[in-house]
Amino acid sequence: MSDTTDTPATVDDDAADPAGTAGRTERWTPGRIGSFALLAIGAVVFLFPFWYMVVGSLQTEPNTTVAGAFPSPGNLTFANYADIDSRVDLVQTLINSSIFTGGVIVLTLVLGLLAGYALAVLDFRGRGAVFTIVLLSLVLPFQLLMIPLYVLLVRTYGLADSYLGMILPFAVNATAVFIFRQFFRSLPEEMFEAARIDGASELQILTRIAMPMAKPAILTAVLVTFIGPWNEFLWPFLITKDQSMQPLAVALANYITNIAGRAANPFGAILAGATVLALPAVALFLAFQRHFLSTDVGSGFKG
């Protein structure tokens, strides 16, 4: 077969270091130039609104001309952040977002590790049924359950304006179960058998042997789970009417729909709030991007 090609090769999965480049001749053929140009245009389209959000949040006067897309020294201020804080209470809403997100992550990890371990390692009658149950919670859209969940949690159990009410519907997280099942299945069967012969209980095997090895999978599950509740709008919006209980996404959305007209620079204040809401998720993503693998979701669907 041909020996020198620049076909789409199998490339290294590390985002920071495309190590596949080593030892490869990089000729700028028209095809590669075209690809590069396409990718560059794509990057502008994807990143510009993000950039514009930060720039807009720092403007004293909103400048919607093209020049306004670049920070100008005479038009810079942090007043918009103070402005949004005076209307939305950033600290309280960020605490609410954190408790909501943290609670979901803890529940997801506990339920997901146990169920993932059971599905991957343990042999019991009905395991197939459990797997089907997990699959079912993946295919049915949450929105169908929105009304009955509201009736149950808010009307029957009185969990409106409570953290528990926000957290509970997110506990049934099939993606996390799949991530852990996939990981535990990749571990050698003999390892579990050896630990059993040494007298370890299954819970000990899970917590002392399997979990320490599963740190990358746990990190992936934490990150993938994080962006769900942190960014979620619909459910916490439905069950929190008291602003002191609202996560930032909900409080900001209410500000956009209700009171934006009264602020001196409504877009500046809104964009400042948007920046505060976006930064934690984006920062986590940039720091740990190798662990945000969409393939985990893909493999989950394939079973």
Partner: peptide, 18 residues
Amino acid sequence: YYVPYVTASVAMIAVWLF
């Protein structure tokens, strides 16, 4: 390409409104 995906809809909608 992944940045909009990890960012809250509410934040990105604010920019599109602008």
